Simulated scan of single mutants.
Amino acid sequence: MEGIGEWARHWQYPELPGLDLLRARYVSHSFPRHAHEGFVLGAVRTGIEDVVMSGGTIRARPGTVVMINPEVPHAAHAGTPEGWTYATLYPSAHLVADIAADTTTLRGTAGFAESIVEDPDTALLIQDVHRAAEQGNALAADTVFRVAVSRLLRRHGHALPERTVRSAGARAAASARLLLTQRLNEPPSLEQLAKELDTSPFALLRAFKAEYGLPPHAWLTGERVRRACRLLDGGTPPAEAAVAVGFSDQPHLNRHFTRIVGVTPGAYRRERAGT
């Protein structure tokens, strides 16, 4: 699979439930601003990845570990003309919480205080998880994964602040997100959405971006891709998944899915099916 061009493998190892794995080389590919339901733990092997966060751009090089908490919007692209190769783990929030409870004294919801750290030893462990999983060594993959996450939590972890909806704008944003979730296939316009919530379009736009880090239309695209992932996990063909989540056709799903996930829907589904 590895070569001088772009390549990627996004898959699940059945012996490690609750974990997705991505190993890839990207040059021209760029990830748009999006967020994940679970955590992102990435280790660059060669090149530089520029990760754009709300506070600025971080430069991920070999020896660093990128740690992104659930639902934190970010984008990414190559930081050098040669691109970057990396290994990334996507553990569920539940899986990280279990490891935190078992190995740390963190209280509340465990997460990470920083988005990038210099931690060469743990960066190598992340790559070792991929290697063991690809070799079918379940004992090694599970052990190294838990050691890596525990080490990151003990060195760089903290309790995430509880999300509370206090202001009228935050309440409107939460209501808007709920309505968009319920009307995934036929979402209202921004003006219609604002009218239903008794606010103005620009007030709703500002509140939504402040609360979720994305404008409503970008959040909706990400949510559709998440829903498509779940359908593909269950064996639904990409063309059917596209219509089910509100894309007009499979090419629209292909474009948005590939940009956000890093592989095509077909490649994603084949890895789930083991074919």
Rank of each mutant, 00 (worst) to 15 (best):
L106H: 01
I99H: 12
G42W: 03
N254A: 12
A97S: 14
T104Y: 03
F31G: 09
L214Q: 06
K195F: 14
A97G: 13
V51T: 14
L253K: 09
A123Y: 07
P14I: 09
R226A: 11
E82P: 01
P32C: 08
L124H: 10
D119P: 00
L89S: 07
E71I: 04
P251T: 07
P81H: 08
T264Y: 00
G55Y: 08
R163T: 08
G274K: 04
D249E: 13
D128Q: 15
L106V: 03
D98T: 13
R9A: 14
A239M: 13
L179G: 02
A93P: 01
P17F: 10
A141R: 06
H94K: 13
A132I: 08
P161K: 09
T264C: 05
G83F: 01
P73K: 01
P62F: 03
R25P: 04
L16S: 03
S150I: 02
H252M: 11
T275L: 15
P14S: 10
T221R: 02
V149C: 13
A241Y: 05
A241K: 06
P238M: 10
Y268L: 02
T143D: 11
F202R: 15
S248Y: 01
E211R: 10
A210H: 11
F257V: 06
A113G: 12
E37V: 02
R59V: 11
L232W: 04
L184D: 12
G55E: 14
G56A: 04
G38I: 00
G55Q: 12
T103M: 05
P251A: 07
R45K: 12
I99N: 10
R45F: 00
P120Y: 04
G246H: 05
P81N: 10
T57L: 11
S200F: 11
G274T: 07
H34Y: 04
R131F: 07
S175G: 06
E196A: 15
A78V: 10
V149G: 14
M53P: 08
L22F: 00
P237V: 09
A97I: 01
R155N: 07
E15R: 13
A228S: 02
R61N: 12
R226H: 08
H156L: 09
E186W: 07
L180K: 01
S175H: 07
A24K: 03
V144T: 14
D142P: 01
L190C: 15
L180P: 00
Q182K: 06
A101K: 09
V66G: 01
T80K: 13
H256W: 03
